[in-house]
Every structure is written in C-alpha cells, then in structure tokens.
C-alpha cells in the first residue's frame, strides 16, 4: 500500500534573504529594465550567429565524411542531433525564429534515427542548406510565405522518410 504523501512547507530562507521592500528589482520588470536585458541578448547575437555557422560547417563536414567516421552513422547522427538542438535553442533567443524552426525540424528528424541512407542524408543536407540561407540573408523573425512553405515541405519529408 502506498504511504501517504508527506508535505514539507516551502522553505523560507531564500525568500528571507533576497526579498525586501527597499532594494533590488520589482517582481514585475519595468519596460525599461526589459529593454536593458534585451540589449544584453542583442549584444550576444554576433557571437551566436558565428557559433551557428561553425555548427553548420561541422554538420556538413560530418555528412561528407560518412563512411570514414569512426563510429559510423551513429556518431554522425549524434553530432547532427547535438548541433541541431543547439541551433533550435539559440535561433529564436537572438531573433532568428526560422533557425529555431528549421533546427527543430532537423533535430526531430534525426532523433531516434539509427542509420543513414542516401535519402536521409539528402534530407539532412537540405536542412543545412536552408539554415545557411537564413543565416547568410539574415532572415530574422519567422519569414514569409516562402519560408512557411519550406517548413511545410520539411514536415512532409520528415513524415515520409523518417521511418521508411
């Protein structure tokens, strides 16, 4: 029989230490403070785009060297998983929502994938191409109808070839 849950009251020490009525930041940030914090993120944008470009190069190189890679397809897929996850997480943070959307599409595609064949490699390549285009043309936000159509096409391709 399951024992009854023991409820432990909230611990007050951190609140007692940091919350007061005179010094610090309001619980709800003022628009001016939000803007200041967003400036911090904005300043990091160049570093992030350089980092993402490096990740695209690494993924492309790994795809070109399939067959030579120690660990075979699995190590290539692991590398693409890790890099696409980082791109998915970073893109929208710095205003490149499309990088996040395409990065997520690529990450979803390789998640759980055990091996690569020609078609799957092409699909990954197409994702990398699309990420390059977004980065090179500095397409911030979610893009327009063309970008929406590309994402829709990736979705269809994922559904068709992931478990093929």
């Amino acid at each position: 029989m399951a024992r009854r849950a023991q409820i432990i009251p909230p611990r007050p020490d951190l609140r007692r230490k940091a919350v007061n009525y005179t010094k610090g930041f309001d619980l709800k940030l003022s628009p001016a403070m939000v803007e200041k914090l967003e400036q911090v993120v904005h300043k990091a944008r160049d570093n992030f785009t350089t980092d993402i470009a490096g990740r695209l190069v690494a993924m492309r190189k790994a795809l070109r060297e399939i067959g030579e890679a120690e660990g075979g397809d699995k190590s290539v897929l692991a590398l693409i998983y890790a890099n696409s996850l980082e791109i998915k997480g970073a893109g929208g943070t710095i205003g490149y929502d499309l990088l996040t959307a395409i990065g997520k599409s690529l990450n979803d595609f390789v998640t759980g994938l055990g091996e690569l064949d020609r078609r799957r490699t092409d699909i990954i390549d197409l994702h990398i191409d699309a990420l390059y285009v977004v980065l090179a043309n500095r397409i911030t936000g979610r893009g327009g109808p063309t970008e929406a159509a590309v994402l829709k096409a990736f979705s269809a391709v994922r559904a068709k070839f992931k478990d093929d």
Partner: peptide
C-alpha cells in the same frame, strides 16, 4: 525566490 513551493515526499 519569492514564491517557494511546498515539497512532497512520497
């Protein structure tokens, strides 16, 4: 920080 939650032990 400001709204700590109770803990559950089960």
């Amino acid at each position: 920080i400001a709204r700590p939650r109770a803990f559950v032990n089960i």
